[in-house]
Design a protein around this nucleic acid. Structure first.
Length: 258
DNA sequence: ATGGCTGAGCTACTCAGA
């Protein structure tokens, strides 16, 4: 089973790129973030024509997440946390894999910049609530897959120049500790487990030739419950979509699991 | 490098992103 996570930065502006990518990558499940549209304007038909059903938690202009799937997803939930700003940032659902019931948790964590504003407070509170809900979920189901745009640089190796981000909402120790807190609940950062020291990124700014200079960061992640680690076949950051015309600033991460 | 580039909503310009 191939599960892919991708912050597309508007599903409608990106629809051609996404459909081209699906044709090549052929995912079973595609977890999208930042779809930037309300449910009623979501391009359901374009995905349906390719054999996918869409489960959408949209929002006008900003945020928004969706699960695009060839297989049936059960118990779709859009209220994993109570979001204090009513942002659409989490959609969850269940799949069956080798008799294991796996909960898919697709997230778009707040950016949090600038750090001296309420945006940073919102990010911290959001992560706090999220971790609490994960703890609760773990007491019901120990097979969790959390994927998406975490807006967290886990370690110094995960960004082209850490010094520039140590006082940024993506790289501050306080935020990176939230990531560690999640791992300590019994999760593995799948990319890092399979690539001990590799420096690869999932995001490059549109500005100042960041892509060309490889000024990127690894902020999109797959976290998997430790007891699912034996099921992993591979994980791959696919840089190709970032090199296309009219790209998202993020590129997809592809997980193969059996 | 607190800049610069992109998308949405809207139709001039702001907000948000990271």
């Amino acid at each position: 089973m191939k599960i892919i996570s991708w912050n597309v930065n508007s599903v409608r502006a990106r629809i051609t790129n996404i459909l081209d990518y699906i044709k090549e990558a052929n995912p079973d499940i595609l977890l999208l973030q930042e779809i930037k549209t309300q449910d009623e304007n979501f391009p359901y038909e374009e995905f349906e024509n390719k054999g996918y059903q869409s489960y959408v938690y949209g929002q006008k202009s900003y945020n928004g997440v969706a699960i695009i799937s060839k297989i049936n997803i059960k118990n779709i939930d859009k209220s994993f946390i109570k979001d204090e700003l009513n942002h659409s940032r989490i959609i969850t659902g269940e799949i069956k894999l080798n008799k294991k019931k796996i909960e898919l948790i697709n997230i778009y964590v707040p950016n949090g910049n600038p750090i001296d504003t309420e945006k940073y407070t919102y990010k911290k509170n959001w992560l706090k609530k999220f971790i609490l809900s994960i703890k609760k979920k773990l007491s019901e189901n120990s097979n969790l897959l959390i994927a998406g745009d975490f807006n967290i640089i886990p370690e110094e190796v995960d960004v082209y120049d850490f010094k520039r981000y140590e006082n940024d909402a993506l790289g501050k120790l306080e935020i990176r500790k939230k990531f560690r807190e999640l791992l300590n609940l019994g999760f593995q950062d799948v990319y890092r487990v399979l690539n001990k020291n590799k420096q690869e990124y999932t995001f490059w700014d549109y500005f100042a030739g960041s892509w060309q200079k490889n000024y990127g960061m690894r902020i999109d992640h797959f976290l998997l419950s430790s007891n699912l680690i034996e099921n992993i076949k591979s994980i791959n950051i696919n840089k190709k979509p970032r090199s296309k015309i009219k790209p998202s600033d993020h590129t997809p991460i592809e997980l193969l699991i059996n």
